[in-house]
């Protein structure tokens, strides 16, 4: 069977997009509902924030995308590759929320991208291993 690297590339980028949307919306919903307290009033403020519905939509989109990827992708590499959102959330939190990135965070982001490039090359090199239905 032909390697499905194009299907994987698009699929994991879409997954990253939905995951990032969720995380960003959660952060904005939390800011909207400040100050935090474990009480019903805080929950009401969260539910009244439009952002929390963006977060839920992102979760649903990510779920549908991940299940579609798992139809073909082996679960071990797929689960690891789904951590690409760590990188996109770091970049967006620095850019949009002006959070400062530490050196280990930058190094970690580079390692995650490297790992995903290696997994992509594994799909091309090792092809469609038997059992990866």
């Amino acid at each position: 069977m032909k390697p499905r690297w194009r299907f994987y590339l698009i699929g994991f980028l879409v997954l990253m997009g939905f995951d990032t949307l969720s995380q960003l919306c959660f952060k904005l919903a939390a800011l909207h509902a400040e100050p935090f307290a474990a009480d019903p009033a805080w929950l009401l403020r969260v539910a009244g924030s439009p952002w929390v519905y963006g977060a839920i939509a992102g979760y649903l989109g990510a779920f549908v995308t991940y299940m579609s990827l798992l139809k073909h992708a082996p679960v071990g590499p797929a689960f690891a590759a789904s951590h690409l959102n760590v990188v996109s959330v770091l970049i967006l939190s620095a850019w949009l929320l002006h959070e400062r990135l530490s050196l280990p965070e930058l190094g970690g982001a580079v390692l995650i991208v490297l790992g995903i490039l290696v997994l992509a090359s594994a799909e091309q090199h090792d092809g469609h291993a038997p059992g990866d239905a």
Partner: peptide, 12 residues
């Protein structure tokens, strides 16, 4: 690939 990603997630 999985090892590099795991190391990266831990570093972050």
């Amino acid at each position: 690939g999985v090892g590099l990603i795991a190391a990266g997630v831990i570093l972050v």
